[in-house]
Amino acid sequence: MNLEELKEMEYIKCVRLLAELIDLDADTKEKIHKCFQSMGIKNFFLHLESVDLSPETYEKLKSIKFIIETVDEKRGRV
């Protein structure tokens, strides 16, 4: 399996986890999946405000962004 396939598998997993975590509908799942594929997950969270999402989904994703940033920062320091 090459890197692209591995990455795609992980994107699918990530979208599924997000859907379970913040109750996404099918359209939003697809939109987020496409964003991951085109800009990457890191850029997706970096430019969250530029993605066309409902205010409710945006707020929940922003919560995830804060958690990721804190985990990155605290674990990076160890």
Binding site: L3, L6, K7, E10, Y11, K13, C14, L17, L18, E20, L21, F36, G40, I41, K42, I64, I67, I68, V71
Partner: peptide
């Protein structure tokens, strides 16, 4: 269950960060 999902998501996000930063791992 939600904390478990969040942990899984963070692990997956960390893997993807590595995948995205390299052509090949």
């Amino acid at each position: 269950e939600k904390i478990g999902l969040l942990n899984e998501f963070i692990a997956s996000y960390n893997i993807l960060k590595i995948y995205e930063s390299n052509e090949k791992v």
